[in-house]
Write a protein that binds this DNA or RNA. Structure first.
Lengths: 359, 359
DNA sequence: CGTGTTGCCGAAACCGGTTTCGGAATTTAG
DNA sequence: CTAAATTCCGAAACCGGTTTCGGCAACACG
């Protein structure tokens, strides 16, 4: 079923049919209707690559997914992909996916997709502080959207969750419970989100009137193992923290192991708050309090923004940020009564206040 | 950089350049070399959709991924996708991914991709007993490969792990340890793998000389919750099983909850063996003994088979099956000594023998 | 030396759409 | 009633490749 068949059936030329279907103004409303209905009835669907050859657009979004051994992101892939796919399908676009194992791999993969024009634009997950993909795509004038933000974001579109606000809220909540030594275990500082979350942690300390202790900050923990190691190191300190804020859920789950090894109970002797909202968190005991991120929404918004940009919208106008949603579960609580002289009532009040703030 | 530029640079016509690059016989070896090297030097890469318009092939594989709320498969997506993507990239093919939430959604999605020719063929995960996708793709003469098998598989290609052998080996192993009441918790019987695994369980009982007790077989358990419910039901039986074989790891993890609720220890009072090899299994306590499935390999093989089929190979000749690999961990052990009179030595011997068999 | 072959490449059609251009028919203005 | 403007569609070029066809030159053969 080609456009020519439709044209013949209507006794028109294929050019006319094409213009009718694409809403050109020089086609009478009557013929437009005729064409539309017969095209639908005959089951005509244009070949995407046939249009692409003239229009230069394949109506396809590109996504290169990094698969690393330490990949805590894999849990999100399904939802994220679903979001992207749904938004793309809604506009009759499709999604071209590739995986990559290294920066170099990723670079050549993107380059190939651009050169072959398999994708009209790209969704870039895991924004780094100085993102090479951004430089290159800018240079070859190919549209892209970031999952994340950038300090120098001129000409960039993005969608992101405000992780910094989450970290700040976590610190405030814990401080409100009576914790005074609150540690922070960050992810890899090459990623921009890690920089932002650290800022959020610091601003939380400030807000709560707590002093910064550099020995309470660790980074590069994105797996259970790394999270466990960081926790062990923190617990070995002369004056160990009573609460830890994790930039990444997976690392927070590592804290469970480390705490158990020292006979400490999470949510009792040691409070823990994570970020991401991975499914495993709710099956831990006690379940992990965390800031949940809606990956499906992220994918959906990113695809929508990218399509908008490819259609001509100014990149800088396409930026969205959203708050992560706190889910209070059992892993955080007021500190054990050994050192803090808070009585029951004031502690409870503090919790309520903090909860109101994180709403 | 278009083919015309290369042709001009070499003082040839674009037709000649095209034939040279595609290995036609009517081009002299000398010019072929000249063309190849200059094309590479100039960085010429053909636009995939421009070739597609004439060749009818976009060099693209289609994958429609089902996202369900009860989706235990999401853990594999990352690896699976990586396998597919790598195999595709190696042949200079790409991958078009869509998600779907229902059978209907999946059908229309596949249909759209076929009509627009975004994909030259499809990888179909989760083969059902009577798979509608198969019927339709056969009817429109579009190539596809199954992740799974089919009873009536005429004209079908597939890759699969022999789950039935795994289930049989699990039963034999448990029987070898001295268990005599071994239950089986299956997945959804609409999926063909569930039918096969049940056959494997039955043949395992036969092999071990154990009697079949229909009350020890449950199905439709593919989540933690469902697994927990099935386990509870089994443990409530007048003569409860001492071991359970699960068709799906995620359900097996549910058994941990159910057992804990009754004060039973996994790997002590109740033995459990799963199937899939999901990451969570090794973090359970005790870690879950399971049959591990290499999703990356599955993706890689499926993509390779599909490309072969699209290139003209006979579908029936493209079939591969592989054994899942048993990983002995702590969730299975000889039954508690209350009822079985096995002494230490014979039990140990039985384990060794069973391990040798499952190698 | 004339006549087939063979090797090798140019010319042009072709794939299925989109877009430009021009002109016939109709409407509006004068 | 004529001239100008408008409406609407056909014709054809075009996108960037692939594939077919034909013919020129070089070579082999009788």
């Amino acid at each position: 079923m080609r456009i020519k068949d439709v044209a013949n059936a209507l006794d028109l030329t294929k050019g006319t049919v094409s213009r009718a279907l694409n809403g050109y103004a020089d086609i009478s409303e009557a013929t437009r209707q005729r064409v539309r209905s017969t095209a639908r009835r005959m089951g005509y669907v244009p070949l995407s690559h046939a249009q692409a050859i003239r229009t230069g657009r394949a109506r396809s979004l590109g996504l290169v997914w990094r698969v690393d051994s330490h990949d805590g992101y894999r849990a999100f892939l399904s939802d994220f992909l679903d979001g992207v796919s749904r938004a793309a399908s809604a506009e009759d676009w499709s999604l071209t996916v590739s995986t990559a194992r290294s920066d170099d791999d990723e670079r050549t993969t993107i380059r190939r997709l651009v050169h072959e024009r398999k994708a009209d634009g790209f969704i870039l997950p895991r924004t780094t502080v100085d993102d090479a993909r951004v430089h290159w795509l800018r240079a070859v004038q190919t549209p892209f959207v970031l999952y994340g933000r950038l300090r120098d974001g001129t000409g960039c579109s993005w969608f992101d969750f405000r992780g910094e606000n989450a970290m700040r809220a976590a610190v405030e909540r814990l401080a409100g419970m009576g914790h005074s030594r609150i540690a922070f275990v960050n992810g890899d500082l090459r990623y921009n989100y890690a920089v932002l979350r650290e800022q959020g942690y610091l601003s939380g300390l400030l807000q709560a009137g707590l002093e910064l202790d550099a020995s309470l900050i660790m980074d590069n923990a994105m797996t259970r193992d790394a999270g466990a190691r960081a926790t062990e190191a923190l617990l070995r300190l002369p004056d160990p923290p009573t609460a830890i804020v994790f930039a990444v859920d997976m690392a927070a789950l590592g804290a469970y192991r480390a705490a158990a090894a020292r006979g400490l109970g999470i949510g009792a002797d040691l409070s823990v708050i994570g970020y991401d909202g991975i499914p495993d968190g709710q099956f831990a005991s006690p379940p992990l309090s965390t800031f949940s991120v809606d990956s499906r929404m992220a994918g959906e918004r990113l695809a929508t923004l990218l399509i908008g940009q490819i259609r001509g919208a100014a990149p800088d106008s396409l930026r969205e940020t959203v708050e992560a949603k706190f889910i209070a579960r059992g892993s955080d609580a007021p500190p054990a009564c050994t050192e803090s002289p808070h009585d029951e009532a004031t502690t409870r009040a503090a919790i309520v206040a903090s909860q109101r703030r994180t709403k």
